[in-house]
Each structure stands twice: as structure tokens, then as C-alpha cells.
Nucleic acid binder design. Structure first.
Length: 291
DNA sequence: ACCGCACCCTGAGCGC
DNA sequence: TGCGCTCAGGGTGCGG
């Protein structure tokens, strides 16, 4: 679900509920590959720790703890990180939604998909992590412990330059769209914002990366930063599952130019937006505006 | 080194 | 109503 903008909005808004607070208890669901650190270990190790910082690298959130360890969170496709008391239909199953009267808001109650609950010594609110598909990840790094997943990440998408992208594309036969999704090249890009950035840059997503010119790489890098910064301003994209930590929706989905607009007219030239699969990911572009 | 694909998991929406 | 199918904003690991 979440790409860099959603993760960054989550970071900013959940930080007040984490930083400076001391953990009293951690509750988890049963072991699954969602937990890269066994949940029993999280339950033993987290209590008593105080959160000192909350940072983001690509789509990862890193909570720095007072003993030098780090709690690493990734939201995968359907992960949701929010404060206790948040109310949103996006936190409910369709069955639960159907039982609600129109306009009725019900505070979230932990369900089977709520894999991590952090309780604090000063009381409310608790912080919860829910993930229906369990593509998200939780791990606890010991002080100074290296993390291959994090070390593999390329330059953060908000810092990417045209020059970096140009160098990364040389000799690469993959579609430029696939290369933009490669977290080792640019950390933070996902399906929505790569499609949107390629539209703004006027580059067809299927084009071989090595055929993209230096000037186009400049435009792609600038466009990627622009769409992501704008999305952060509007609270991210709430298309199916994403909610901010207070339960509120983002608004960037209303500004999409191509993503999930198959058949609808291009906002620039009027041609119907096309969808095709590139690198096993659904990809959207305007046949008139992108070469 | 690079590339394409299978796979991890659950649920929504569609046609029949 | 139910069945089977496709699709979904993520990433890893394998074989060619």
C-alpha cells in the first residue's frame, strides 16, 4: 500500500505518540513471516525502553530506542500504523463496515490482523500496527547491528538527482518503470508515484532504461520529487487501505493523472489512459503525452 | 550482473 | 447465494 509519501506522513503524525514515551508492554500475534524478529523476543525486549527518535529510510520506519537498539517497521501493501482511538472505516473489514449505519464512526478495536500493539507507561494512546496481507515487516536490531535490508537501499527518492538516475540507467535493458521501482536504485518509489512521475516527465514507462536520455532522467527525478512532496502535503493517497495515524484519509488520489485511470481521458490531451503490465506491476500511461 | 518469474497472504469485486 | 476468477499501493529468492 504505502509508498514514500504515505510512510512519511505516517512518520510525522505518529511521532508524537512514540518519541519520548516509555514502553510498558508489547502485544503481538503468533509467529509468522511478518515478524523477522520472533514476536516473543519483541514482547520480552521492548518493555522498559524509551523511544528516542523516529526516522524514515525509503519505505522503512526506524524507531531509535534508548539502549541503542532500533525497531524497524515496513508497512508492505496493507500495513497500517495508527494510534489507539483512531476511527476509520479503512480499519474495518467489509463485513464490519456493512454493519455500520451511514456516517457512523466506530473507534478501532484490535482484530486478528492487528499484529503489534505498543502500550506505554504513561497510558493512552497505544500505538497499533495492523496488516491484513502480512507483507509488512517488524524487526528489532541490537545496538550497532547491521541490517542488510536497509544497507541495500539506494538514495532516498526525495534526494534523487537526475545525474544519479542517469548513471543508474546506463547499460540497463529493463523498462524504466521497473528500474524506478528498484529500491536499490531509488528508495521509496512505488507503483503510484513512478507512474505519475513518468507521466509528468513525458516518458513511456516501457522504454528501456538505457534509452532514456540525460535530460529525461533530469525530468523524471524532478517529477518524482515533485509528486511525492505534493502528496505529503495532501496527506498521501488513500485508495483502499491507507489511513493516517489519526484515522484520517489522504487526498492525493484526487490529483492522480494516470494511476488507476484506465480508459479515462488524459487531463492534458484527452486521450484515454492506457494500462499494461510491466515487470508484473500494473502500469498506467498516456499514449499521447508519453514517448 | 542482469532479468523474468514464482511466491508470500487475505480480501474485494466481478461475471456467471 | 455461491463459485471461480482477477486484481491489489510490497519485497525476496531462484533459475536461466
Amino acid at each position: 500500500m504505502p509508498e514514500l509519501p504515505e510512510v512519511e506522513v505516517t512518520r510525522r503524525r505518529i511521532a508524537p505518540a512514540l518519541v519520548g514515551r516509555t514502553l510498558r508492554a508489547a502485544r503481538t500475534t503468533r509467529p509468522s513471516y511478518f515478524f523477522l524478529t520472533p514476536p516473543g523476543r519483541l514482547r520480552r525486549r521492548l518493555p522498559g525502553r524509551t523511544v528516542r527518535s523516529l526516522d524514515r529510510r525509503g519505505k522503512y520506519l526506524l524507531a531509535g530506542l534508548d539502549d541503542g537498539s532500533r525497531l524497524v517497521l515496513h508497512l508492505g501493501m496493507t500495513g497500517q500504523l495508527f494510534a489507539g482511538g483512531a476511527a476509520s472505516v479503512r480499519l474495518l473489514s467489509a463485513t464490519a463496515r456493512a454493519a455500520l449505519a451511514p456516517e457512523e464512526q466506530v473507534a478501532f478495536r484490535p482484530d486478528a490482523h492487528t499484529h503489534l500493539r505498543l502500550e506505554f507507561s504513561d497510558g493512552e494512546p497505544e500505538v497499533l500496527m495492523r496488516d491484513v496481507r502480512k507483507f509488512g515487516k517488524v524487526l528489532l536490531l541490537d545496538p550497532g547491528e547491521a541490517c542488510e535490508r536497509l544497507d541495500r537501499l539506494g538514495v532516498d527518492a526525495l534526494e534523487v538527482s537526475g545525474e544519479h538516475l542517469f548513471r543508474a540507467t546506463r547499460g540497463r535493458r529493463v523498462a524504466i518503470k521497473s528500474l524506478l521501482l528498484d529500491q536499490a536504485v531509488i528508495a521509496g518509489g512505488g507503483n503510484i508515484y513512478t507512474d505519475e512521475a513518468l507521466f509528468l516527465a513525458g516518458v513511456r514507462p516501457s522504454r528501456a532504461a538505457r534509452r532514456v536520455t540525460r535530460a529525461e532522467c533530469e525530468r523524471i527525478a524532478e517529477s518524482l520529487k515533485r509528486v511525492m512532496l505534493r502528496s505529503i502535503e495532501t496527506g498521501g493517497s488513500s485508495i483502499s487501505d491507507y489511513v493516517a495515524p489519526d484515522g484520517s484519509d489522504g487526498a492525493y488520489q484526487d490529483e492522480r493523472r494516470v494511476y488507476a485511470r484506465k480508459g479515462e481521458p488524459c487531463r492534458t490531451c484527452g486521450a484515454p489512459i492506457r494500462r499494461r503490465v510491466i515487470g508484473q506491476r500494473s502500469t498506467h500511461f498516456c499514449p499521447g503525452c508519453q514517448r
